[in-house]
Write a protein that binds this DNA or RNA. Structure first.
Lengths: 145, 145
DNA sequence: GAGATTTAGATAAGGCAGTTATATAGTTGG
DNA sequence: CCAACTATATAACTGCCTTATCTAAATCTC
């Protein structure tokens, strides 16, 4: 119990710090919720404002203004929902997809530089952990939350 | 090369998503830089404003105002630097340490619940990766950046 | 099918946390 | 002892979020 709990705390701590560090290395110039919203649009297809707000855990007016920014930057666009005249569907544009690609590449590059400084055993341990980490994510995405 | 690069992108992606998810599960009520600054104070002892600003990669006025907030909340305090009348040393208080402890416990709890749903092999892979992740962090902390 | 209720989104007003530019006060070297 | 430097604070501004409220479309009830 104590053992597992310690590892868990370690993992949470380590993830925390790595993320902070990655964020600093790749100064995004766009806010973190901008990126995660684009990610969500890329993964789930055109979505309603209120659905996006719920996924990103921000308020509906907050998402309205975020979408306004995305639209102004040409990274997403509003299309009308044929089935509901009140709703607007938000769709990622090619420019939005390009932004995601570029950012992911930049982060991978920075992380890659650090990985080069680890030894083979350490790198192997990280590689071996990726599938479990991915499972962790997909589990939560299908969870009710 | 391609192989390692793919793993790297995977790792960056996975870390990204895990962090977003952790952040949402444990709505912090305090900003992320508040926490990381307290962390830094706990780890490195009383520090100057400008040193903190550099470590956290925010501007010096930004750190001044962050420290003002910490002080107002009773989580840190300014003490005068005996060796330099211009400088203020910022020191974490017991309340600040308690906040860190509580937050880390909350995150570990949430993460632990998910880990329980993995199988033994997956958990072992994660545990095995922790030391390498930690090395990754300590490397960058001692780097010149 | 007309009017009340609910729902999707927009607008308004405000706050917090960051930015750059600049001011103030203490330190240090010639 | 004064000039230049350094540590922090203050000022003015911006970005991105919040809650409260408004409008318009959909749905439900009779």
């Amino acid at each position: 119990m104590g053992r597992i709990q310690d590892d868990t705390a370690d993992l949470a701590d380590v993830i925390d710090r790595l993320t902070m560090w990655l964020r600093r290395q790749v100064p995004t110039a766009v806010s973190s919720s901008t990126i995660t919203t684009l990610d969500s649009l890329a993964a789930n297809g055109p979505s309603r404002i209120s659905d996006l707000a719920e996924r990103e855990a921000i308020s509906q007016p907050g998402m309205t203004s975020l979408v306004n920014r995305l639209e102004a930057a040409g990274q997403a666009e509003r299309v009308s929902d044929p089935t509901d005249g009140r709703a607007a569907l938000v769709r990622i544009t090619d420019a939005g997809l390009a932004l995601l690609t570029q950012r992911h590449a930049a982060r991978a590059l920075v992380l890659g530089r650090e990985l080069d400084r680890l030894d083979d055993t350490e790198r192997a341990a990280l590689t071996a952990a990726v599938p479990a980490l991915r499972r962790l994510i997909t589990m939560r995405e299908s969870a009710s939350l």
